[in-house]
Simulated scan of single mutants.
Amino acid sequence: MARTKEFDPDAALQSALELFWRRGYEATSMADLVEHLGIGRASIYATFGNKHELYLKALDRYNETRDPGLLHELSQPGPALPAVRTVVRRFATEAGSSERVKGCFVTNTAAELGAHDPAATRRVEASWSHLETLLHSALIRARAQGELPADRDPLTLARMLLVLMQGLRVVGKASDDPGRVRDAAEQALRLLD
């Protein structure tokens, strides 16, 4: 007879996500995970696989649950540029907030593992591609509606905004000056005028 799990795998995955997000991949040991999740090493392996597999599952969870309203926000009928500006400003505000110490789990993963972990890099790229596509679509609408000058390339602008937004997260994580990220965001948004 198979034993039933004595823990909630969903809650354990969320707890692992929070630990990895706060400490990073390399600084989190299996012993840390055992202690933080409150479940045995064998149960972690049986349910999630090794530490790397658990990390990737946590990153998948983050990507699935992070900012679910972004699509809705950027695809509303009516003027598109105000929504784009709102999203960029929100990223700047979040980057300059007290939560900035954790940063963005995707951005943290890119910085820590991106150069040598193809599985993590694929997930980072998927997240960035999703955001870029949302921005690109909104900027195409903005140009079609006459909000964005006809000589502006929506794809290039979307890519610039994606890089800016990720950079805001990196700088905001280490800077004590929220004006730094706010000013950078406002300067970039002038390119949409």
Results as ranks from 00 to 15, higher is better:
K5E: 05
D10C: 06
D10T: 14
A11N: 04
F20Q: 14
F20D: 07
W21E: 12
E26T: 12
S29H: 06
L33G: 07
H36Q: 07
G38I: 10
G40V: 05
G40M: 12
G40W: 07
R41F: 00
I44M: 09
A46K: 14
A46F: 00
T47A: 10
T47P: 04
L54V: 08
K57T: 02
N63R: 08
L70R: 15
L71C: 03
L71I: 06
H72N: 09
S75H: 12
L81Y: 08
A83Y: 02
V84M: 08
V87E: 00
E94I: 15
S98F: 03
E99I: 11
E99D: 13
V101G: 10
F105H: 05
T107K: 03
T109W: 02
A110P: 01
L113K: 07
G114H: 03
A115G: 14
H116C: 06
P118A: 15
A119I: 00
R122H: 04
W128R: 11
S129K: 11
L135M: 11
A138T: 08
A142T: 12
R143W: 02
Q145R: 14
E147N: 10
L148I: 10
P154F: 11
R159N: 13
K173C: 02
A174Y: 13
D177W: 06
A185H: 02
